[in-house]
């Protein structure tokens, strides 16, 4: 391993992680400075719809494609979402596995599994780029940040896929690129739409609390709807 590869795998990642953590904490403090709404009224709806159940239902909504018409009627798109986010999780995990626990990659089946997931996520990334440019509705709501974030992640998937074997016999360029992209990704994320996962628990918590208190969540579906 060259000194440069060591630098991008270790100090660069650690600095990037530190920056990300500081920025995230700042961001959360900013969000928390806004007051939370208060519900004074007695609960409405069925007895088994409570704020607590509403919050849990709301948080778990992501894992319940039948819970929303938008996912229920677009199962292929939902599957893309799952693959894409599993790809993100795997590529992030890889950025820790290679520098700190490289032996994990020696476990039989781990490398093919990671490559399968990340490779599939790369393909989904390409699909999503086509959709973002090609779909009139999506193009109208897309910002440069949306396009760039998607491009960044898709390219990152490609280099993560190539880096899974952690093999430098043919050169280090793919690993160096992967770790530089990872560091950039870590620093860029808090300023981009990719930070949505930071907000997800909050938006879903408050929506779930409100809808639970008002008897809407959990939604019980009539099978024919």
């Amino acid at each position: 391993m060259s000194e440069f590869l060591h630098f991008v795998e270790h100090p660069l990642q650690e600095i990037a992680l530190l920056i990300m953590a500081v920025v995230y904490i700042t961001r959360l403090r900013w969000l928390m400075k806004f007051p939370a709404g208060k519900e004074r009224q007695a609960a409405t709806g069925a007895i088994d719809t409570t704020p607590r159940r509403g919050i849990i239902y709301s948080w778990m909504n992501i894992a319940n494609p039948m819970g929303m018409e938008s996912t229920r009627t677009k199962i292929f798109f939902y599957a893309q979402f799952v693959v894409f986010h599993l790809g993100v999780t795997s590529a992030i995990a890889l950025s820790f596995i290679i520098p700190y626990w490289p032996h994990v990659l020696e476990i039989p089946g781990v490398q093919p599994l990671l490559q399968f997931i990340i490779g599939a996520a790369f393909i989904v990334g390409l699909f999503r780029m086509i959709r973002r440019y090609g779909d009139k509705y999506i193009r109208a709501i897309s910002t440069p940040d949306d396009h760039f974030s998607l491009l960044l992640l898709t390219v990152w998937f490609l280099f993560a896929f190539l880096s899974v074997p952690n093999d430098t016999s043919g050169g280090e360029w793919h690993l160096v690129t992967y770790f530089i992209l990872t560091a950039f990704f870590l620093i860029y994320v808090p300023f981009s739409k990719i930070s949505h996962y930071l907000y997800y628990p909050f938006t879903r918590y408050y929506l779930g609390k409100t809808m639970g208190h008002r008897g809407v969540y959990p939604i019980e579906h009539n099978p024919r709807t």
């Binding site: 939370a36 929303m68 779909d135 739409k193 408050y206």
Partner: peptide
């Protein structure tokens, strides 16, 4: 907090 959450969390997924 609820409104701010809704204003920052949209990912323009089009769902």
């Amino acid at each position: 907090r609820q409104i701010v959450g809704s204003l920052v969390a949209c990912v323009h997924c089009g769902m």
